[in-house]
Design a protein around this nucleic acid. Structure first.
Lengths: 247, 247
DNA sequence: ATTTTTTCTGCGGGATCCCGCAAGGCCGCT
DNA sequence: AGCGGCCTTGCGGGATCCCGCAGAAAAAAT
């Protein structure tokens, strides 16, 4: 059995290497890649079915790498080993994990033992392992109490990218008014809504921009999610007819 | 001589510890703190004048910690050791460094030797050391070719926080029209401006939101800078009279 | 199948944003 | 003094946003 490590920090890489050798005696080789691209290539070449990777790498995001790897080989087992449990990351991961796939998500702040246990559980026992804390943000995210619908998350991204209502309507196949409805919904859930009578700090906030701000502060959005969204957007724009029909 | 290490990743902490002992034989003690608060406390207690710290820690930001430390003891020498050379960080640091202070900024991706050299230069030779790459973003930032004025940066932050034009005008003591002028300025510099005749992808973008988006993508803004700005904002709001005079 | 709930849509209007135009003020230069 | 920049401010207006109201359509519950 071989394990592929995708992680851009050399220190963390060698630490992982050591942990893997200690936790998995049945492992007879650890490959290392220092960014997503190299990782994908190695995964493809070596048909490696056991991967430990960081999210948030400079060259190519872990989520994107994982997506292409899983697309080619859905049975690959991936342990995400990350510094953060931001909702943006957690949501990003759970959006791409194939049905029935075995994966894990443990924080770098976890203890040695937890990491080793997770390694064994995933690679040997074929069991998913999600860190408590990550689990927490996951539930908060999916359970729609104080959580966000797919639709709401979508429109949040759209305004974060700077699209107008009309553009969003086109992109999502909605009327402009529906877009605005969803926006209202979003404003309420983000606690940005101003119920008309509030003359205290009223009129100080641009709801649209404010919504994006609190989303960032709450880590619903982060740099990498924005980057991905931007890439999606430009590819969508490329597919669009190059003029704006409704003048 | 004692050196204080403020860094939340245990691996990096111990690596730093080793590097310091190797590079500075005259150092007879390394203290460690795993977040900004603890670091400030230790710095105060021990009157430590030699600090190596990470930016971006979970509990309390490195920049904030550095600011309070320098406020109490401007002669403290601080080496920032960070993963990123984001303009947001670089600008944040250079905003708080006292006149004549000795400090350094090296990336974690730098070699062993560079780190050790920086340690000696700063703590022994009293010489500032800024990583090449960091220097690059610094110049791009300060040289106003494709760089941003203080005013522009300020207003960027204000719209990123979600303030209305009126609120910004109040806060910065300007007329609403001036605020809008600066906004136009900002839009142009961010390459978001639409010179009227452009009916290709015109009307698709909400300039205000788009500006924030590209600022994030270009790393002019990041999470920690937003957090700081948000804190500043709420403290400013608290100082304000609690009603909106111009109804 | 009917009721209930949710979502989508159009209309209308007030608030805000975006910005061209133009009139001042401050500064440095000749 | 005079001139050319740069920043600020007011005015005006078109575009956009925000949202209440209410009916239609779809989905979920009974």
């Amino acid at each position: 059995m071989k394990v592929l490590v995708i992680e851009d920090d050399p220190l963390h890489r060698s630490y992982l290497n050591e942990a893997i050798r200690a936790a998995l005696p049945e492992c007879d080789g650890v490959l290392e890649a220092e960014n997503g691209h190299a990782g994908e290539r190695l995964a493809r070449d070596l048909r490696s079915a056991h991967i430990v990777m960081d999210l948030q790498m400079s060259q190519r995001n872990g989520i994107e790498a994982a997506r292409t790897i899983w697309k080619e080989r859905p049975e690959t087992r991936i342990l995400f080993w990350s510094n953060y449990s931001d909702e943006a990351y957690v949501r990003g991961v759970s959006r791409i994990v194939p049905v029935g796939a075995v994966y894990g998500y443990v924080l770098k702040s976890a203890s040695d033992d937890r990491l080793k246990l997770a390694l064994r559980s995933i690679f040997i026992e074929s069991q998913c392992v999600i860190d408590r804390e990550v689990r927490g943000t996951q539930q908060k995210s999916l359970g729609n109490v104080n959580g966000f619908t797919e639709a709401e998350y979508e429109i949040l991204i759209d305004i974060a990218l700077g699209l107008t209502d009309r553009a969003i309507a086109q992109r999502r196949n909605l009327s402009v008014r529906s877009v605005q409805n969803r926006l209202q919904q979003l404003y309420i859930k983000l606690g940005v809504y101003q119920p008309l009578g509030n003359h205290d700090d009223d009129g100080r906030l641009n709801l649209r921009a404010r919504a994006v701000a609190v989303a960032f502060l709450r880590k619903l959005l982060n740099h990498s999610s924005l980057e991905r969204a931007e890439a999606d957007l430009t590819s969508w724009l490329a597919r669009q007819p190059h003029d704006c029909p409704p003048l």
